[in-house]
């Protein structure tokens, strides 16, 4: 704060990019811990995990996968647009990304809502009656998709801030490191989903 003027006279975009990647590594390992738990319990309860996966809607899962993949592309394109000084296209692409992210969350809401209606939530009697494998599967399902959804929400906030900065011309063709880093964060969210999707929805 006080010494900001003297300390930050050099802008080092590479430093912030390395910093962002390092942050992404910590996020990957945060989910990595959950993936270890998932693997161990899948290994110990193969049949229950197979059957439980059939409770999940493959259709909603696939739609959400497509949505996230497209949104990942649009945010990557918005960086190219900024580099080419095409501000209008960047604004359009970023707004598209944020819209897709919101659609993802709406789908997720209906999916979770359905599970709750069927009494499939942690601590419920229905789940307890299904057996231990199902308790573990749905515990992990809610934790991992929940943590992922939390990252989507954070991503929406970050991307909205970027959008405002592009509109206000604070991000321009010679100064777009922030947008690049926000994009990296959004791709991380995509990367994790690429693994969550088959592990929870497909293997059944």
């Amino acid at each position: 704060m006080e010494q900001t003027s003297t300390h930050t006279e050099h802008r080092d975009d590479t430093a912030s990019k390395i910093g962002m990647w390092l942050f992404i590594f910590t996020e990957l390992l945060l989910f990595g811990g959950l993936f270890i738990v998932y693997s161990v319990y899948r290994f110990k309860n193969p049949v229950a995990f197979h059957l439980a996966a059939e409770e999940l809607s493959k259709l909603i899962g696939t739609i959400n996968t497509v949505i996230l993949l497209i949104s990942s592309m649009t945010v990557a394109m918005s960086i190219s647009a900024i580099q080419l000084a095409d501000r209008k296209k960047a604004i359009l692409l970023l707004s598209g990304t944020i819209t897709l992210a919101l659609v993802f969350l709406v789908n997720k809401y209906f999916e979770w809502h359905g599970k709750f209606e069927h009494g499939l939530y942690p601590g419920s009697q229905e789940l307890f009656d299904l057996g231990q494998g199902d308790i573990l599967f749905f515990g992990l399902y809610f934790t991992m998709t929940g943590l992922h959804a939390l990252h989507i929400i954070v991503g929406i906030i970050v991307l909205t801030v970027m959008l405002v900065k592009v509109i206000k011309k604070n991000i321009q063709s010679d100064n777009y490191a922030q947008l690049e880093n926000a994009g990296l964060y959004w791709h991380l969210v995509d990367l994790i989903w690429i693994f969550l999707f088959p592990l929870f929805y497909l293997i059944s």
Binding site: V37, V40, Y41, K44, N45, P122, G123, G131, Q132, G133, I135, L136, G139, F142, T143
Partner: peptide, 17 residues
């Protein structure tokens, strides 16, 4: 999560290890 929401992770009664 296990303490507050009773999500099964490490409790042997819920299948955890």
């Amino acid at each position: 999560a296990e303490r507050t929401l009773h999500v099964g992770f490490f409790d042997p009664a819920l299948g955890g290890d």
